[in-house]
Simulated assay, not measured.
Amino acid sequence: MTSRGLEVLPGVLLTAAIALVATGIGSVLPVLGSAVPAIIIGVLLSLLRPRIMRTHEKTDARIQPGIAYSSKFLLQLAVVLLGVQLSLGSILQVGLESLPIMLTTLTVCLLGAWLIGRMLRTERRLTTLIGVGTGICGASAIAAISPVIGAASAEIAYAVSTIFLFNILAVIVFPVIGHALNLDPHTFGLFAGTAVNDTSSVVAAAGAYSTAALGFAVVVKLVRTLMIIPISVGLSVMEARRDGNGQRLNGKRIAKLVPWFLIGFIVVAVINSTGLIPDAPREVLVTLSVFLIAMALAGIGLSTDIPALRRAGWRPLALGGILWMLVTLTALGTIAVTSSFA
């Protein structure tokens, strides 16, 4: 373990330094959060890596293990710690009200990603990342499913950037929509928590609408994060069937397919529900999970294949835009049908 720690230390320190800078940027510009600046800084530095390798090959070789460690293990650990933001009580209370809208928007989004992705001929894994990121919770969902489907760094970077673009549009457009439809704060919180992806963007959009809308929107968003679990398990099964040469999937094999970090996510949420985690340590764990995601995305950015991003072209961006509009319209339509308007 000591040997492994020393091996990954240089690269981990680099991703931590990037995460610190990204966290500072996010504190000044809360709408950005820390995830997007981290991956952007990582991508920018990755552009310099070929030049660095030519003059400092040993340095590049020393940081590579830590970059890979950050982008994989630390990413999975961050997903586990996300469970500390949820309790069974809040899940049940908010879930009963928001579940019809969550399920409807998620179904429409995933079906839309499959159909529109095929029409646009976007790559399968990139389509999945954008679809799940749009339908569930942006960078956190992308972080959770990327190891499940074996997504490449370039695909993760493109998906996170695409989701972020439409999050920014949501922050601007959603309060306008809410005022135009005369939504009460509770209903707008339900709308924003369901249709905006990243937590920081949910906070920005709901906070711009009203303080009363903010608290409920955040809880809805956190409950929505739970959708990561069934989607990840389903994707695990699909990947196994795709790579298993038609082998039959029994209960034992399916159980082995459940990623360890999703089990950890559930365990942490259950422990948090018991009240065993005091407020101060909980806040520390929440902050740590956000910081680890920033470190992981920094690692992903550093290992991004820029030519692969260029080859992806405009189609994934168009897919993200169409799915964003579908989710927004579906959320509003479902709220109207379920008589949630004031």
Score class of each variant (00 low, 15 high):
residue 1 M to V: 06
residue 3 S to M: 02
residue 5 G to W: 11
residue 8 V to K: 01
residue 13 L to F: 08
residue 15 T to K: 00
residue 15 T to N: 03
residue 18 I to G: 03
residue 22 A to P: 00
residue 24 G to N: 00
residue 25 I to Y: 03
residue 26 G to C: 07
residue 27 S to C: 12
residue 27 S to Y: 03
residue 28 V to R: 00
residue 30 P to T: 06
residue 33 G to W: 02
residue 34 S to R: 01
residue 34 S to A: 07
residue 37 P to L: 04
residue 37 P to Q: 05
residue 38 A to W: 08
residue 38 A to T: 12
residue 39 I to Q: 08
residue 41 I to L: 11
residue 48 L to S: 12
residue 51 R to G: 03
residue 56 H to W: 03
residue 56 H to L: 02
residue 57 E to K: 02
residue 59 T to Q: 04
residue 61 A to M: 04
residue 62 R to M: 08
residue 62 R to G: 08
residue 62 R to A: 09
residue 63 I to K: 01
residue 63 I to V: 01
residue 67 I to W: 01
residue 68 A to L: 06
residue 69 Y to I: 08
residue 75 L to R: 02
residue 77 L to W: 06
residue 85 Q to S: 05
residue 91 I to M: 11
residue 93 Q to K: 08
residue 93 Q to C: 07
residue 95 G to N: 15
residue 101 I to R: 05
residue 101 I to N: 01
residue 102 M to G: 01
residue 109 C to N: 04
residue 117 G to N: 03
residue 119 M to F: 10
residue 120 L to S: 05
residue 120 L to R: 05
residue 122 T to H: 02
residue 126 L to P: 10
residue 127 T to S: 12
residue 128 T to L: 04
residue 130 I to N: 07
residue 132 V to P: 15
residue 132 V to A: 06
residue 140 S to Y: 04
residue 142 I to K: 14
residue 146 S to Q: 08
residue 147 P to K: 12
residue 155 E to R: 00
residue 157 A to T: 11
residue 157 A to I: 07
residue 161 S to W: 01
residue 162 T to E: 01
residue 163 I to F: 01
residue 165 L to T: 13
residue 168 I to L: 13
residue 174 F to R: 05
residue 178 G to Y: 00
residue 182 N to F: 02
residue 183 L to D: 07
residue 184 D to I: 09
residue 187 T to H: 02
residue 190 L to A: 02
residue 192 A to R: 00
residue 194 T to V: 07
residue 199 T to R: 02
residue 200 S to A: 13
residue 201 S to Y: 07
residue 202 V to E: 07
residue 204 A to S: 15
residue 209 Y to E: 10
residue 209 Y to F: 15
residue 209 Y to T: 10
residue 211 T to A: 14
residue 213 A to L: 05
residue 213 A to T: 04
residue 214 L to H: 08
residue 215 G to E: 11
residue 216 F to G: 14
residue 218 V to C: 06
residue 219 V to D: 09
residue 220 V to N: 06
residue 221 K to G: 11
residue 222 L to P: 07
residue 224 R to Q: 06
residue 228 I to V: 11
residue 228 I to P: 07
residue 229 I to N: 13
residue 231 I to P: 14
residue 242 R to H: 15
residue 243 D to Q: 15
residue 247 Q to E: 12
residue 247 Q to C: 14
residue 250 N to F: 05
residue 252 K to R: 14
residue 257 L to M: 09
residue 257 L to Q: 06
residue 273 S to K: 13
residue 276 L to C: 11
residue 276 L to V: 12
residue 276 L to T: 13
residue 280 A to Q: 14
residue 284 V to Y: 15
residue 287 T to N: 15
residue 292 L to N: 11
residue 293 I to A: 15
residue 296 A to I: 12
residue 297 L to Y: 09
residue 299 G to Y: 14
residue 303 S to C: 12
residue 303 S to N: 14
residue 309 L to I: 13
residue 310 R to Q: 12
residue 312 A to G: 08
residue 312 A to W: 00
residue 315 R to Q: 11
residue 316 P to K: 07
residue 319 L to F: 09
residue 322 I to E: 05
residue 323 L to G: 02
residue 324 W to D: 10
residue 325 M to K: 01
residue 325 M to Q: 04
residue 329 L to P: 01
residue 331 A to P: 03
residue 338 T to Y: 04
residue 342 A to F: 09
